[in-house]
Design a protein around this nucleic acid. Structure first.
Lengths: 354, 354
DNA sequence: CTGTTAGCGCTTTCAG
DNA sequence: CTGAAAGCGCTAACAG
């Protein structure tokens, strides 16, 4: 089969290449009649534009890159869903890159993206990210970037986050009000804002309710599940163990449960647990798990919308687009009193106003 | 900043454009000395090749498209993880497209991909996909395609699947051996092989164990959670309700639990449930949930490996690459006797031999 | 409204 | 081993 490109269409129709090009792009300076002829033939011959050629020439790309640490837990899965839905609406393509929480990989990735073959970048930094030169370089090349969930304090650009401090505060407060005397916090990084904010909210709640803070109750976990479990076992094995745990990332929930199982401690009778988690199904399976659900889908949608807004309007100030989307404390432990409803279908949740 | 491209490098080094190009691609016909000079300057000036230009010229792409129905559940999240890891090893980029189980969207997507700007496609068909013209067209354009999880019977190409029939058979067998007399099956499609295979395995087990099959126990669910819950409530509300349920896709698990809650039925005391699910964390949270865990990560890795193999070796016969990777029946219901271990870290799981 | 022309940045013959 | 030149398919001035 003859390869059908613009040139071929032009020959068939006795038109010039540029006319065909313009007709296909629905340019205002082409007659309706010609447009119709072109579009019809294109359809008949199954013409598909060459993406690389058009991007090369126009110096525009309609791809966006999503750079995230992992996609294993449901937060990022839902976020991708949100991003992809907005991208599709805007005719953009979505590239996925995983850093596996490695700064080195993150740097290499962003380096690649510098050539400008993606129009914009949506990013959640790795837990190792403290230097930010690679991010600054990308911005210096004029490629817009929006952070979601895990921003970088040092970089000035739009940040779509959730109310980490507040939700952590509320969760801690909730535990205190329900009589917990010794609340441990499991975090995963000393530098990520999601960690430091959640830590700060927790600390403030302790202060406000005149609860003592013990450094040993603030456990910094790692990337390794086995290690984390061990850390939690150490935390819980003493006589005067914590009576509550606030797990600041989804995957730590698993480790907490495993550790409790090993120590034959019951949740929530021996230890109450509140967990940042988006595992909708998991929640339903275990009615006693109280969680903080993050608006992952909405965050994805919002971040993507912002990128497209800035791509359409070069003078749009990305920095001004930062949004905090609140998360939901879903109390499901029957020994707690309140019960808030689950968001049953996040796909239908409204888009945060930007 | 002067934009640094091959031409600029060539001028700086007093070399021709083609020499620089060859040096960067490590061509054998360039002296080591020249190569070194070029590479050093490129590094110093932070040269990043223009992806679109090189793809246009060489008519090669190092992007692959992943076309899947959703990314909301953990099966596809883990699969993406696997695909991305292989892609990174091979220097490829990964594009994600979601069809939201819609044939129309799937057709439009594949049409787009026909232009050849992706080197290959990994795909799980939507539940609506019965016509396959769009897939055939893509293959006709010479773009290799590998199915994973949800293949299309009518298309001859590599298929990475799991042992749907066997796992379903085993699960049913297990329930029968544990004394269940009336086992219901929840499926999600009449045409998807994952559904028909699982249904067939279930039916065969009933036959082999001389259990009656009642059509009313074979419930075809929809895309809507609310509806599904209603269907399950109808199934369970009668006096002589099923004493076990086999849920053939992850998201149905949630609906089953919600339905049981509404009817105040206890799992597993009133109804035993076995669910196809990859929610690792969920499993740990509910020790009584027996599941069939699919090798999502390995399937992703295997599918991606195959695509790259066929891209590197044009004469490699994709059809011959089909693999069935077995899933794991994880029995966790305490009223069951056996207990098999959880795969704690699928990321370290070995790659299936291809 | 349509055509002519000049490249985008890179790869790849074909000549040296 | 290196250079000159052609052109991938498309877009965007500029000129009618």
């Amino acid at each position: 089969m003859e390869k059908v490109n613009i040139k071929y269409l032009a020959e068939e129709l006795n038109l010039s290449i540029s006319t065909v090009s313009r007709a296909l792009r629905d340019s205002y300076e082409i007659s309706t009649e010609t447009k119709k002829r072109v579009v019809e033939l294109a359809k008949k011959l199954d013409y598909v534009p060459n993406y690389h050629a058009s991007s090369l020439r126009s110096k525009k790309s309609n791809m966006i890159a999503v750079v995230i640490p992992e996609v294993a837990d449901s937060f990022f899965a839902q976020a991708i869903n949100g991003i992809e839905s907005v991208a599709q609406e805007n005719g953009y393509h979505v590239l996925i890159y995983l850093t596996h929480e490695s700064l080195l990989q993150e740097q290499a990735l962003l380096k690649d993206l510098q050539s400008g073959w993606v129009a914009g970048v949506l990013m959640s930094v790795s837990s190792e990210t403290e230097q930010v030169a690679h991010i600054e370089e990308l911005l210096a090349k004029g490629i817009p970037l929006v952070f979601f969930d895990r921003p970088c304090d040092k970089i000035e650009t739009a940040k779509i986050t959730t109310d980490d401090w507040e939700s952590s505060y509320k969760a801690t407060q909730h535990l205190i009000e329900r009589g917990c005397k010794k609340i441990a916090l499991l975090s995963v990084s000393d530098s990520l804002s999601i960690s430091t904010e959640r830590m700060a909210g927790y600390r403030q709640a302790l202060v406000d309710y005149a609860q003592p803070f013990e450094p040993s109750n603030n456990v910094l976990c790692t990337n390794c599940e086995e290690q984390n479990m061990q850390l939690i076992i150490n935390l819980l094995k003493d006589e005067d163990r914590p009576d509550a745990i606030l797990a600041t990332v989804e995957k730590l929930t698993t480790s907490v449960y495993l550790a409790c199982k090993k120590l034959q401690l019951s949740i929530p009778n021996d230890v109450k647990v509140i967990s940042f988690s988006n595992l909708q199904s998991a929640l339903l399976l275990n009615p006693s798990l109280t969680t903080i659900t993050q608006p992952a889908f909405e965050m994805g949608r919002t971040a993507a919308s912002l990128i497209f807004k800035s791509l359409k309007n070069k003078h749009f100030n990305l920095k001004a687009g930062s949004v905090v989307i609140p998360s939901t404390l879903e109390i499901r432990d029957s020994t707690f009193t309140e019960v808030t409803p689950v968001i049953s279908n996040p796909l239908n949740a409204p888009l945060a106003h930007v």
